[in-house]
Design a protein around this nucleic acid. Structure first.
Length: 868
RNA sequence: GCGGUCAUAGCUCAGUGGUAGAGCACUACCUUGACACGGUAGGGGUCGGUGGUUCGAACCCACCUGAUCGCACCA
C-alpha cells in the first residue's frame, strides 16, 4: 500500500475514478432489477450552455440523492439530457450567420436549420462533459435531447392529442411581442423591470368645442397614430359632459370618440387616457368593449409603420417616441415632459421591452386545473420547502391560456397544415398543395413532457413516477407546474390513478446563488465564477462540499470562494486523518471495535458516530443538505480528529498499551463508516481513500449505508471520556491564559475526590503536553486553579505568577459563575415556574445551581488566598 | 396593491420553547512526530423594534421598520 500524499490532490484522482465508474456501467439503471426504484430526471440544461454555479448546486444535490440511494440498496435511475432551447439557440446561430454576412431569410429554413444543427454539434454537449467533471452519476447511456427523433414525435403527438380534445386553438389576440427576437412569448417569459422614462402631457382639441382641449398623460406618444378613442371614467365630473363628443388626433389627423370606461383611474395623471387598442393590453380590452377599430402602427421589428406620418414612418420605436413628442411640441400640443418611474415588461431572451401586439397565435387552455391543485395541496406531490405551494396555488388560481407558438424555426414545428381555407392537424403532410404552419412550439411545450417521454415504456414501468425533482424556484411555472399538467393529462403511468400519473413525488426547490452584494450571478455582470476553474483549483469534492455546506433549504446563497476553500480544507483534513491511520499499519476493513479492549475515548467516539449517523438520516429525510454537511464536518473535524485521534496518540506511543488494538479497530471502523457517509458529498476522495486504504477492492459506491450501532460502546465509559477531555481543556485553558506555549512542558497538580487511573493520568499528561500531572492531597497555595468535573487543576508557576493578573482571571470566572447562579436562582425561586416546568428540568436547574454554588465557593477561596 | 422570505458576532450563516453556536476574519502563542488547506487559547452578540401568549421567547402570535423575491399593475 503506497503511502498517501501529504495533501489531498484532487486532480490526480478525479479523472481516474470517473472513467472507471463509467466503464463499469454502474450508473446504467436496470429496469429488471429486483431492487426498489429511485429515479430523478435532470432539469435539462440548454444544449449549448455551459456549467454555472447554479448547475453545480442543483446537480450536486441530485447526485447526492442518487449516490445515497444506491448505497441504501435502491436501483437508481438518474436520467440526463439537454434542452434544444429554441429561441436562445436560434438567436445565437442567427448572430453567427450574420457574422458570415448572410441571414436566416437568405439561407431559407432548411439551410438555416442545418446551420443550427452544425452549431449544436459543435457547441453542444459541453455541459454534459462538465457535469461529468463534477462527478454526476447519471445514466449517460440514456441521455436524451428534446430534439431527438422520438422525443420530437412525442411532442408533436402531444400537440395533436390536445388539439383534438379542443385544448389547443388558434386566435388573434394581444400577445407579448419581442421585437428583438421577432416572436411572441408567453406571459411567464416577460420580466417586469422598473424603468425611469418620461411622462408626456399633451392636449387634444375637442372637435365639437373648438378651443377646448382635453389634457392627456402618456408614456408612449409614439403610438398616438394608433389611437382610436380617448377615455375617461364615467363618474368623473370633470369630463362627464364631453363623453360622446370627439377629439382631434393630431397626426395623422382624425376625429376619435371620447368614451367612458370603468377601467380608468380618475386619480391618475389627468384622468384621461388615449386608447390604443393595437398596442396595449388594457386598451385592447377597452376597444373590445366599445368596438373600437384596431390600428397597428408598429412592425414586427419595433419600427413605426405609418406612411401618413412620414416624419415617423420607419423610425425605431424609442426614437419615434422623442420625435412624436417634438412634433406635438411644434404643434403647441405638448404641455409638459416629466421624469417618470414605471414598470416595463422586458423580453427575457431579447432583453428589450416587449411590444404588446395583436397577433395570430396558437394557445393552450390548461385542462385539469383542479386536479393539478389537488395533487399538491393533498401532498401527493410534496414541495420542499412547503411555502412554494402558495406560489403554485396562486398561479393556478389565476391561470391564463398559454401562448405556445413561436415565430422561430429551431424547435418542434407546429403540425398544422393549410390549403386555402382548409386546415388540418397531423404530423405528416396531407398531400399536394398543403402548406405547414411556419411556426415552432415554445421550448417549454417540449420540456413539460420531460419526466416521462425521456423513458421507454420498460423504463417507465419501473421508474415512473420519479422520486424527486430538484430545480430552482424560478421555473416553478415555466416547467414544474406544466410537468404536473402533462402527467395528469397524458397519464403515462401504469394505471389511471392520480398516484401513478404525477410526474414526481417530491419537488426540492434550491435557492438562487448570489454574489457577495446579493446580486444574481449573471454573465453580463461578470460576477459568475467558472465552476471548472474552481474544480481545477479546489477539486470537485471541495466545490461540492463547500457549496452544500452553505446551501440551506429554500434560501438564497451568498457565494464566496472562501466557502469552496473550506470544502477543500475539510477534504484535506479527512485525507490526513487517513494518512495518519495509514502510518500506524495495515487497516482491518472488517474491524469490530467490540472485539477489543477500548479506551474511554474510543467509547465516546463510537457514541458520537452513532448519533451522527442518526442525525444525518434525519436531515436527509427533510432535505436539509447543509445540516448533513455540518454533521459530517463537526464529527470528522471535532469528535474524530481533534479529540479521538489526539487521544489515540497515547496508545500509539505505547506498544504495550492494552487499548492499542481497540483504538486501531475503532479508527478503522469509524473511517469505514465516515467514508461511506461522506461519499455522496465527496465521491472522488472517498473512493480514493476507500480503495487505497484497502477497505475493499470494490468501489465504495455500493457499500452499504451506515446504520447507527448502539451496542458497540458503553455510555458510562463515554461519559468518563467527556470528563477527561474537559480536564484537558481546563489545563490547556490555564496554559493559554498564562501565555505558555502549547508545547512547553509544565507540571500540573490535580486536587480531586474522585479516582484517577494511572493510565488516565499518563494519557492526560500527554494530551496536556505536560511535564507531569500529579494528584495531590492538599491544594497548593497561591496557585492558578481551574475547576473541572474531575477535580481542581492547579498550575504551579514558581515566580511566574503575576498575582494581579491571576486575580483578574479569577474575578472574571467568579463573575461568570455568579451570573449563572442568579439565572438559576431566579428560576428556582419562581413558584409558578417550579409548578409548571417538567420535573426533569427542575432537577437539572437544581443541579446546575448546586454546582455553580460549589464552584463559586472554590473560586472565592482561591481569590481570598491570593489577596491574603 | 396582494403574497412570500429574510433580519442572530466585523462577514457568511446554523439554531422552532429551557445555559447564545459554526466557519471565515481578528488577537496571542505553537513550524508538537496526519494535516499551516494545520494546532491551542482568547476577544467579540441587550438574537431589527414594540407589544402579546407562556412558569420561561432568538424561537409562537400581532404590529412596525428595513431588505429581498414572486404575482398584479395606471395611461
Amino acid at each position: 500500500m503506497p503511502e498517501l500524499a501529504k495533501a489531498y490532490e484532487p486532480g490526480l484522482v478525479e479523472e481516474k475514478h470517473y472513467s472507471n465508474w463509467l466503464e463499469s456501467g454502474h450508473y446504467h439503471a436496470d429496469p429488471e432489477s429486483g431492487k426498489p426504484p429511485f429515479s430523478i430526471v435532470i432539469p435539462p440544461p440548454n444544449v449549448t450552455g455551459i456549467l454555472t454555479l447554479g448547475h453545480v448546486l442543483n446537480n450536486t444535490i441530485q447526485d447526492i440523492l442518487c449516490r445515497r440511494a444506491r448505497m441504501k440498496g435502491f436501483e437508481v435511475l438518474w436520467l440526463p439530457g439537454t434542452d434544444h432551447a429554441g429561441l436562445a439557440t436560434q438567436t445565437k446561430v442567427e448572430k453567427a450567420v450574420a457574422d458570415e454576412g448572410t441571414s436566416k431569410e437568405e439561407l431559407g429554413r432548411e439551410a438555416f436549420l442545418e446551420k443550427v444543427v452544425e452549431w449544436k454539434d459543435k457547441h453542444g454537449g459541453i455541459i454534459i462533459q462538465q457535469l461529468k467533471k463534477l462527478g454526476c452519476s447519471c445514466d449517460w447511456e440514456r441521455e436524451r435531447f428534446t430534439m431527438d427523433d422520438e422525443y420530437y414525435q412525442s411532442v408533436i403527438h402531444a400537440f395533436i392529442s390536445l388539439y383534438e380534445k379542443g385544448y389547443i386553438y388558434r386566435g388573434k389576440r394581444m400577445v407579448n411581442w419581442c421585437p428583438a427576437s421577432m416572436t411572441a412569448i408567453s406571459d411567464e417569459e416577460v420580466i417586469m423591470t422598473p424603468q425611469t422614462g418620461k411622462l408626456y402631457t399633451m392636449k387634444y382639441e375637442i372637435v365639437e368645442r373648438p378651443g377646448a382641449f382635453l389634457e392627456i398623460a402618456t408614456t408612449r406618444p409614439e403610438t398616438l397614430m394608433g389611437d382610436t378613442a380617448v377615455a375617461v371614467h364615467p363618474e368623473d365630473e370633470r369630463y362627464k359632459e364631453f363623453v360622446g363628443l370627439h377629439c382631434r388626433r393630431p397626426f395623422p389627423e382624425a376625429k376619435i370618440p371620447i368614451i367612458a370606461d370603468d377601467h380608468l383611474d380618475p386619480e391618475f395623471g389627468t384622468g384621461v387616457l388615449k386608447v390604443t387598442p393595437a398596442h396595449d393590453k388594457a386598451d385592447f380590452e377597452i376597444g373590445e368593449r366599445h368596438s373600437l377599430p384596431l390600428i397597428d402602427v408598429i412592425t414586427k421589428d419595433g419600427t413605426i409603420d405609418c406612411p401618413d406620418v412620414p416624419e415617423l414612418h420607419g423610425m425605431e420605436r424609442f426614437k419615434a417616441r422623442e420625435k412624436a413628442a417634438d412634433l406635438l411640441e411644434e404643434m403647441g400640443l405638448l404641455i409638459k415632459k416629466e421624469k417618470y418611474k414605471n414598470n416595463v415588461g422586458f423580453s427575457e431572451r431579447g432583453n428589450v421591452p416587449i411590444e404588446p401586439k395583436i397577433s395570430e397565435q396558437w394557445f393552450f387552455k390548461y385542462p385539469r386545473v383542479d386536479e393539478a391543485l389537488r395533487v399538491v395541496n393533498e401532498k401527493q406531490i410534496t414541495f420542499w420547502p412547503e411555502r412554494w405551494e402558495k406560489v403554485y396555488n396562486h398561479w393556478l388560481e389565476n391561470i391564463q391560456d398559454w401562448c405556445i407558438s413561436r415565430q422561430i424555426w429551431w424547435g418542434h414545428r407546429i403540425p398544422i397544415w393549410y390549403k386555402g381555407e382548409e386546415m388540418k392537424c397531423q404530423s405528416e403532410s396531407p398531400g399536394e398543395g398543403w402548406e405547414q404552419d411556419p411556426d415552432a412550439l415554445d421550448t417549454w411545450f417540449s420540456s413539460w413532457l420531460w419526466a416521462y417521454e425521456t423513458m421507454t415504456s420498460e423504463v417507465r414501468n419501473k421508474f415512473y413516477p420519479t422520486s424527486v425533482l430538484v430545480t430552482g424556484p424560478d421555473i416553478i411555472f415555466l416547467w414544474v407546474a406544466r410537468m404536473i399538467f402533462a402527467g395528469l393529462e397524458f397519464r403515462p403511468g401504469q394505471d389511471e390513478t392520480t398516484q401513478s400519473n404525477i410526474p414526481f413525488k417530491d419537488v426540492y426547490f434550491t435557492g438562487l446563488i448570489r454574489d457577495q452584494r446579493g446580486r444574481k450571478l449573471s454573465k453580463s455582470l461578470g460576477n459568475s465564477p467558472d465552476p471548472l476553474e474552481l474544480i481545477a483549483q479546489h477539486g470537485a469534492d471541495g466545490l461540492r462540499f463547500g457549496m452544500m455546506r452553505v446551501a440551506p433549504q429554500g434560501l438564497d446563497i451568498r457565494y464566496d470562494e472562501k466557502q469552496v476553500e473550506e470544502g477543500r480544507n475539510f477534504c484535506n483534513k479527512l485525507w490526513n486523518a487517513c494518512r495518519f491511520r495509514q502510518m500506524q499499519g495495515t487497516i482491518d476493513p472488517q474491524a469490530q471495535p467490540q472485539d477489543h479492549e477500548l479506551s474511554a475515548y474510543a467509547h465516546l467516539a463510537l457514541q458520537e458516530l452513532a448519533s451522527t449517523i442518526d442525525e444525518i438520516d434525519t436531515h436527509y429525510e427533510r432535505y436539509e443538505f447543509n445540516q448533513v454537511a455540518a454533521c459530517l464536518y463537526s464529527f470528522v473535524w471535532g469528535d474524530f480528529c481533534s479529540r479521538f485521534l489526539e487521544a489515540a496518540k497515547a496508545d500509539f506511543g505505547d506498544p504495550d498499551s492494552p487499548t492499542r488494538s481497540g483504538t486501531l479497530a475503532t479508527i478503522d471502523y469509524i473511517l469505514s463508516q465516515v467514508l461511506r457517509l461522506l461519499h455522496p458529498y465527496a465521491p472522488f476522495m472517498t473512493e480514493e481513500l476507500w480503495l487505497e486504504l484497502g477497505f475493499d477492492s470494490q468501489t465504495i459506491q455500493f457499500a452499504s449505508w451506515p446504520k447507527a450501532d448502539l451496542t458497540i460502546f458503553d455510555p458510562d465509559e463515554a461519559k468518563r471520556a467527556e470528563d477527561l477531555y474537559a480536564l484537558v481543556n481546563a489545563g490547556r485553558s490555564l496554559k493559554g491564559e498564562f501565555q505558555i506555549a502549547g508545547n512547553q512542558r509544565v507540571s500540573f497538580q490535580l486536587h480531586t475526590q474522585s479516582e484517577l487511573k494511572e493510565k488516565e493520568r499518563e494519557d492526560l499528561t500527554r494530551l496536556l503536553q505536560a511535564q507531569s500531572l500529579n494528584v495531590v492531597e492538599h491544594p497548593p497555595l497561591k496557585t492558578p486553579m481551574i475547576i473541572s468535573p474531575l477535580g481542581d487543576l492547579y498550575l504551579p508557576l514558581e515566580g511566574l505568577v503575576d498575582v494581579d493578573k491571576e486575580k483578574e482571571r479569577l474575578s472574571k470566572a467568579i463573575n461568570k459563575v455568579e451570573q449563572e447562579i442568579v439565572r438559576e436562582q431566579k428560576k428556582l425561586s419562581n413558584e409558578q415556574m417550579l409548578a409548571n416546568a417538567p420535573e426533569e428540568k427542575v432537577t437539572e436547574w437544581k443541579q446546575l445551581y448546586a454546582e455553580a454554588k460549589d464552584k463559586l465557593a472554590k473560586l472565592k477561596t482561591q481569590f481570598e488566598q491570593l489577596s491574603g
